[in-house]
Amino acid sequence: MPQITYTDADGESRTIDATVGDSVMETAVRNGVPGIVAECGGSLSCATCHVYVDENQVGDLPAMDEMEDEMLWGTACERTDQSRLSCQLKVTDEMDLHVTTPETQV
């Protein structure tokens, strides 16, 4: 079963069993992982589901499209090379993804 591990800005981690096809954002929100807000419910409109993907894994993810790229320039916490919007990351078979949530989303 795919798993996502969410680590908050204070270093506390929580691992969730995820469902293939859901997004990394949906997996977090439905299970009440704090640190991911997702006001727009995943329609790429609010940039409140910002995560930093583990540096060894970020290169393995599908590339971002232009809209996600532009939205990421406006996130509440500084964008880095590891930044993604978790609503755009789909859970796949065998995924064992590690992401860190920023200090704030808004």
């Binding site: 940039a47 809209m67 532009e70 939205m71 320039w73 406006g74 996130t75 808004v106």
Partner: peptide, 14 residues
């Protein structure tokens, strides 16, 4: 279709 402007204004207002 201009998220860059939207995010900039939302941030400035906030």
């Amino acid at each position: 279709n201009h998220p860059l402007d939207f995010m900039a204004v939302r941030t400035a207002l906030g």
